[in-house]
Amino acid sequence: MARWGFTVDLERCVGCMGCVIACKAENGTPPSIHWMKVVEKEEGEYPYAKRTFTPLRCNHCADAPCARSCPTGAIVKRPDGIVVIDQDVCIGVMACMSACPYYVPYRWDGEDGYYGEEKVPYETVKYAAFKKGTAQKCHFCYHRIDEGRPPACVESCPADALNYGDLEDPESRINELLRQKNHFRPREELGTNPSLFYLTGKGGGKVGGGK
């Protein structure tokens, strides 16, 4: 069985937000909810100041704190490692939002669309997938993965900064990248065992990151 992983090449990301828009277009998330974010940080001082960009999304942790904290069992891990929320079971406790160190989940309470109370046809279709008062987050575009297509954010990235693949397959593109480049996993010290790796430069490293 595959275990899907994700790499973000911090050297390649130019902060274009293409992944953010692609995610919104694919999943139709309501206003102010972003399953994919690219956060900026200013580093250094003039004349050497620079901006760095860090794409953030659900890390689909092997030991997901959101799933552990959920009292209803609405957050489940698929056999391929993708962490999904069953909106029929979620009651909107928001424990997952407190427990996630990456502050990934959101709760949608059925607010207006981008153009006010009256939703455009696109929003009407897309919002129908979200149950009011339940949590939601990135689901690794599992509907695309199941069809053999890449997640929308990966497909849209013009700089090839985002990649995905099977962590269990030594020949997969993602493991190739992990062999080629230095990498780290976000907040690994918390024991969440994330499936997302940030690539930082040439030099290689162990396959599977922190293993």
Binding site: P71, I91, M94, A95, G110, K132, G133, A135
Partner: peptide, 24 residues
């Protein structure tokens, strides 16, 4: 009232995962 609008009526689900969740 803190629970999700509409979703809160399924509140009995809160007892489902006492093995892992402190809320349960």
């Amino acid at each position: 009232t803190h629970l999700g609008p509409s979703a809160r009526w399924r509140f009995l689900y809160v007892f489902r995962k006492p093995a892992s969740s402190w809320i349960a």
